[in-house]
Each structure stands twice: as structure tokens, then as C-alpha cells.
Design a protein around this nucleic acid. Structure first.
Lengths: 257, 257
DNA sequence: AAGTGGTCTAGACCACTCA
DNA sequence: GAGTGGTCTAGACCACTTG
């Protein structure tokens, strides 16, 4: 256990709802503090664009030192949960606004700017996972997924057909909602799912008949296949998407780190 | 200026060769310390696989507190200059070994593993920049570049044609060297250039006659165009590469952050 | 002037590795 | 057991923003 300054039992007077910071856990305090921050944001307790308490106050309420609190805040900022601005405060990020909304969209136009088209839902259902979904979403057989087929358009012209699958567990009763045409990032926010890293596999393919019809091109036309998985902050798969995209006048921008 | 504990002029007894840490600079001390680390590595003063002095000793020699030194080391580790292992020490990374060597190579085979083929140099010269090189490498007109055309092969079969351009300033007398077939990462190491981020633009194209000939496919065959720029740690462009790649049985893996 | 995050200090103990 | 990095503490002053 770690050094306990003066106080005998720091967590005695803390209520035990949700995630708290405990010295009886082996998990480092700064990670516990970050978890607590993430939990408050996911639960909507701290809302986007609103400032959260300052470092010293947070340190006091979590029962850790300011230095440890700072480390937790640094981490949360790197994970895009927060934005800190010197002299102003620490603000909860809004995944559905500005750059953040298009975080996982790497398709750019000739000008190098992101293409943010309209979305048209072609199909939406909840079923049992198939084999590929099992693999990508790391689900067990017989688990349920929400499956969406949708079309993205710019200026009324379709450019990408998407087949999306999401674990039904993470998005309860999504099919009864009206808003399946929302961007995934916005959906996740509404369901209290915080998103982390993702990976996307790109290959070149030929449009199958149904794909060609949806994209309004001839069968066998060359398309870019974008096979993408987005994970939650904790690393669980939250979305698998197979996109089939016409690349004339467009490119994909990848960051190398 | 920052708080100067007891000592009047901390840098008086420090020799002034190369990068040092000075309280008369407005640059934060932890960044100055990281710069000093990077400089020693780039200069070959600290060699790959060898442990550098421990945190407290570094803090003493740079004249900063252990906490500040730690922040510098954390940064250097995030930038892949170092690897720290609890209980063992801090070791200089070797860009030319293992995972590091293929850091910027995102092409994978059917099994998901990186494809690390052989390299055949078709052409190598030093000339004045052309328009596109100017743009990508942020050079001025009339500056010099090293231009290489090379072929990558697996099992003796070509799969990617690469046109590479590098600022001649960063790689003096490269054309006289024998080793232009080296991977870029290895070249950079040899010339004391530390590498940072990169970006790659992917598009679908058709093979021009010379490209088709080099790749041993028919003219107009579908290829993936990989337009990549790699920057130094300080953010200056160090390499521009236009790859034209046959994607049958291969895919590109992009990380999303 | 007051409040915020950014930087910095000078220690402490813990977990891990290795001789 | 000695040495390393990993975590944690409890302060300080600085730079920036806002009323």
C-alpha cells in the first residue's frame, strides 16, 4: 500500500456511488482519478462546453495530491475527454461539435478538407452476430448486434456505401430510436459510450451488384474498401464498419506516428 | 524568469558545447532537457541499446529537478527516442532494429503482418527541386534534393514502385554512398536525423506505361497511390515518397487516434 | 486583482530487476 | 541488497485570461 499522510482512512467519508478513488486498489491513483473523470463525463454529470472544478478542488474531492490530479487531467486531455486552457479552466469536450465529430473520418476532397456528406439509412435491424462481426467486434456467438446499411452523399450524389455493426449491449433499444442516421460519434455520446482508438484496413475492390446499384456505377467498378473498427476508451470494440467508397476526386489521409 | 533556488548563476560552470539547459531561455526546462537528450542521441554520443544515466544523475548534470527531468524523459519516450524499463534503466532506441525499422510501413499481407520486401534501386541522382517536391518538402526554388526511384519486391516479384525525394541538405553526399537502397529510417539514423510524425495520402490510380513496366502488369492496371511525407522531430519535412502499389492480397492499415 | 492552468522543486516510498 | 524507473506528495512561482 502507499504512504498514507496524517489521515487514517481517507475514503471513510466518501460516498460510494460510482467510481471513486481508493488506496486499497492496486490501480495507480492517477488512473483511478482519470476513470472517475471519464465516468462523470459518460454519465452526463459534467456536460460539454462546461468548465469542471479546478485542479486543486478536484484533488481535494478525490483525496489525491495536486500533482497526481494533474497527471490524471493530462491523460484525460490526451484522450480527448477534456480541453485545458491556461487562465480559463478545464472544459469537457463535445464529441458532436466541430473537429471532434469527424474524428474517425479520414476521407478528404481534392482541396484536402474532410468530406462530411449527408447520410441516408437504407436498412436497420437488430439480429444475431454473423461470423465476421464476431471476429471484428470480439463478441461471442449468439450475441446481438445492430446492423445498419447506409449511404453517404455529397451534393445529392452517393459516394460511399456503409455496412455498420454495433454490439446491441452498448446501444440498447437503438432500433426504436429515430436517429440511426446520426454519426456514430454522436450516437456513442448519447448512449454514454466514450470512444478511444480505432483502426482501419484499406483495400481495393470491385463493386458487387447491390453496391454498384447503390452507388450508381456499373457493376465491377473499382472501389476503396474501408474496414474500420472503433474501440471504447477501455478498448472494447464499439463499431465495425465496412465502407465501399468511390475515390474519384477523393483521397484518404492517414497520420503516421 | 523562473525561481532560482540558492544558486546565483546555475549555468556558469556548465561548458557551452552543443545544446544545454539554460534558465535564460523562455523555453520550458523540460523541453530544453528533451532537446539535450535528442541532440546527444542524434550525435551518436548515446548509442542504441545502451543505458543512459539514471534520472537523478541526469537531473544533476542538466541542473534541473528530478521531476522536471522525468517529464523530459516521458516526452522522449513518447517520441520513441528512448525505452524505459522499471528496475533496469533507460535505453536508447535503435531505429534500424525490429518494429522501429518498419515504423512508417503500413502495408500488410493477408495474414495482417507487415510486408518487408527487398529493395532494388532503379535510379539515383541529386538535382534541383521540381514543383511538387517544393510543395511537399517545403523547400525554396533552386534548393537541391536527392531523388531515388526504386522497386520493392517480395519473393522476387515487384509490388511497389517508389519515387523518393529528400532534401539534400539533410543528407549530404548521399549520392556518393553505396547504401541508397537502405530503408529511409536507417538512412536518417546514419545522418543523425531524428524522425517524428508523418502523413500519407491514399488514392486509387492507373499505372502509367513506365510504372506498369516496372511492376510487370499491363498498362492502366489499378494501383494504390501512396503519397507520404515524413517529418523530423522538429517538424521539418525529411522525405517525400510517392508509392504505386499493387494491392492484390495486401491492405493498408491505418491507426485512428 | 483574482483565478486558472503551466512549470518547477525536493523530497518520499513502492515495484521491479539483477547480481 | 543495491539500483532502477513508477508513483505520489505538498508545496512554490509563472503566464495567461477575465472581471
Amino acid at each position: 500500500m502507499r504512504n498514507l499522510p496524517e489521515r487514517d482512512s481517507p475514503e471513510r467519508d466518501m460516498p460510494d456511488h460510482g467510481i471513486s478513488v481508493s488506496r486499497f486498489s492496486t490501480r495507480p491513483l492517477y488512473l483511478q482519478a482519470r476513470d472517475a473523470i471519464a465516468q462523470r463525463i459518460a454519465a452526463g454529470e459534467w456536460k460539454p462546453h462546461v468548465a469542471i472544478p479546478n485542479e486543486n478542488e478536484l484533488a481535494r474531492t478525490f483525496g489525491v495530491s495536486p500533482g497526481t490530479m494533474r497527471k490524471a487531467l493530462d491523460l484525460a486531455e490526451a484522450e480527448r475527454l477534456l480541453t485545458r486552457r491556461q487562465g480559463r479552466g478545464t472544459f469537457v469536450n463535445d464529441p458532436s461539435s466541430g473537429e471532434q465529430r469527424e474524428r474517425y473520418n479520414s476521407i478528404r476532397g481534392r482541396d484536402g478538407k474532410r468530406i462530411c456528406g449527408d447520410v441516408e439509412v437504407l436498412n436497420l435491424l437488430e439480429t444475431t452476430v454473423n461470423e465476421r462481426e464476431c471476429l471484428r467486434l470480439r463478441l461471442r456467438l449468439r450475441e446481438r448486434v445492430i446492423r445498419i446499411r447506409r449511404l453517404r452523399l455529397t451534393d445529392g450524389k452517393p459516394y460511399m456505401l456503409e455496412d455498420v455493426a454495433m454490439p446491441a449491449k452498448l446501444f440498447p433499444n437503438l432500433t426504436t430510436h429515430q436517429d440511426a442516421s446520426q454519426r456514430f460519434v454522436v450516437l456513442a455520446q448519447q448512449f454514454g459510450v466514450l470512444l478511444g482508438k480505432g483502426e482501419e484496413r484499406l483495400a481495393i475492390g470491385a463493386a458487387a451488384p447491390d453496391v454498384a446499384a447503390a452507388l450508381q456505377v456499373e457493376e465491377g467498378a473499382t472501389v476503396m474498401r474501408l474496414d474500420r473498427v472503433i474501440y471504447t476508451l477501455e478498448g472494447k470494440p464499439a463499431e465495425w464498419r465496412l465502407g465501399q467508397c468511390l475515390m474519384e476526386g477523393r483521397h484518404y489521409l492517414a497520420e503516421l506516428n
